[in-house]
Amino acid sequence: MIHLEKKANWVRNQVLEMTASAKKGHIGGAFSAIDVLVALYYGGFLRFNPSEPAWEDRDRFILSKGHSTLALYVILADLGFTSWDAFKTYGQNGSFLGAHPDHAIPGIEVDSGSLGNGLGMGAGMALAAKMDQKPVRTVVLLGDGECYEGAIWEAVMFAGHHGLNNLIAIVDRNGQCVTDYTEDCNRLEPFTAKWEACGWEVLSIDGHSFAEIGQALDHGRNRSTQRPLLINAKTIKGKGVSFMEGALEWHHSVPNGEKLVRARRELTWTE
């Protein structure tokens, strides 16, 4: 478990530094999702091959909350999907890495800058895998603020109806949207009951506990049910930097000066 925690800390540091130097990035939502991303990519759940990104039997991963893509870029570069030199172009004019995922980037399946479409696309992939009897799992990471989009619920119904048990949705339930807290803006609760009502199996976990994320993913690997799986990962926006945690202004603020120094200090790894 410690290697995942250490890796997640390292990813947070990379995201922090890149956001600071490029003066662009969505730190809050990246930090809330990083532990889940690290568990997916380094915990042995997703099957992929960095030297063959288009490998037919790879698991499909969609970062539907595309604004957290900087964390995914760090991971894809670390795993060898892209080079570090390429990664370093983030934020520069002409870079192939934008602020949101692009299907042209090795390791990224679809464009997901626009919120609300990843789950439907993932459901289409899961349906195709079932039709063709491929051993492919599809995982979609959603933001909770994203779940205001109606297309999400169209896909929730579709996946439940079609028994897409090879589809896993993970909601980064940090309780915040861009400018507000979700329960103040437009109440999402009772959140998981809505998914259950549409035929999903639901697990609620601490999205910063590698033990709980691991257990949930293990469960996702070995299920006998016909239902798709929702992992409702309770997280903290800005996780890891105290003054960012749960603070509304850190959706896409860029740290500098004293705040950057403090963030670096708080993210210093100690064994």
Binding site: N117, G120, M121, E154
Partner: peptide
């Protein structure tokens, strides 16, 4: 909307 998204996945 879901029609097009499902089609995209397929």
């Amino acid at each position: 909307q879901n029609l097009i998204n499902i089609a995209a996945g397929l």
